Simulated assay, not measured.
Amino acid sequence: MSERDSGSSGRAKATSRAKTSDQAPFGAFVRKPVEKSEGKAKADVVPVASGAAEMRPETAESWPADVVEVGKIVDAYGLKGWVKVAAHADAGHGGDALLSAKRWWLMQGHERRSTPSLQAKTHSDSVVAQLGGVADRDVALAMRGTRIYISRSEFPALEADEFYWVDLLGLDVVNVAGVHLGKVADMIDNGAHSVLRIEYPATDKSGKPVTGERLIPFVGVFVKTVDQTAGLITVDWEADY
Rank of each mutant, 00 (worst) to 15 (best):
M1K: 14
R4H: 12
R4D: 14
R4K: 13
D5R: 09
G7K: 02
G7I: 01
G10R: 06
K13V: 15
A14Y: 06
T15E: 03
T20S: 10
T20K: 04
T20Y: 01
A24F: 02
P25H: 05
G27E: 05
G27W: 00
A28E: 07
F29Q: 07
F29A: 10
V30N: 08
V30E: 10
P33G: 14
K36D: 09
E38T: 09
K40W: 04
A43C: 08
A43M: 12
A43G: 08
D44E: 09
D44Q: 08
V45P: 00
V45R: 10
V45E: 08
P47Q: 03
A52C: 00
E54T: 11
E54R: 12
P57C: 06
E58K: 11
E58I: 06
E58D: 03
T59G: 06
T59C: 02
W63M: 12
W63F: 13
A65Y: 04
A65F: 04
A65G: 15
V67K: 00
V67N: 04
V70D: 02
V70P: 05
G71A: 11
G71I: 07
K72G: 08
K72N: 11
I73C: 03
I73A: 05
V74Y: 02
D75R: 04
D75W: 11
D75C: 11
Y77H: 15
L79P: 01
K80H: 11
K80Q: 11
W82Q: 14
V83F: 06
A91F: 13
H93F: 14
S100V: 15
W104A: 13
W105P: 10
W105E: 00
M107K: 13
Q108D: 01
G109C: 01
H110I: 11
E111K: 09
S114D: 01
T115R: 00
P116V: 07
L118P: 00
Q119I: 10
Q119V: 02
A120M: 05
T122W: 00
T122S: 13
V127I: 15
V128H: 04
V128I: 15
Q130G: 13
L131F: 05
V134T: 09
A135L: 09
A135E: 08
R137I: 09
V139K: 12
A140R: 04
A140I: 08
L141Q: 15
L141P: 09
A142G: 06
M143C: 02
R144T: 14
Y149R: 00
S151H: 03
S151T: 12
R152P: 06
E159K: 10
V166A: 05
L168N: 00
L168H: 01
D172P: 02
V173L: 00
V174A: 15
A177E: 10
A177W: 05
V179K: 09
H180S: 15
H180I: 07
G182F: 05
D189I: 09
N190K: 03
H193Q: 08
R197A: 15
P201A: 11
P201N: 03
T203S: 05
D204C: 02
D204S: 02
K208W: 04
P209A: 13
T211G: 02
E213G: 10
R214W: 05
I216D: 08
G220C: 02
V221I: 11
F222Y: 12
V223A: 12
K224V: 14
K224Q: 10
T225M: 08
A230P: 01
I233V: 14
D236C: 10
D236E: 11
E238F: 12
E238I: 14
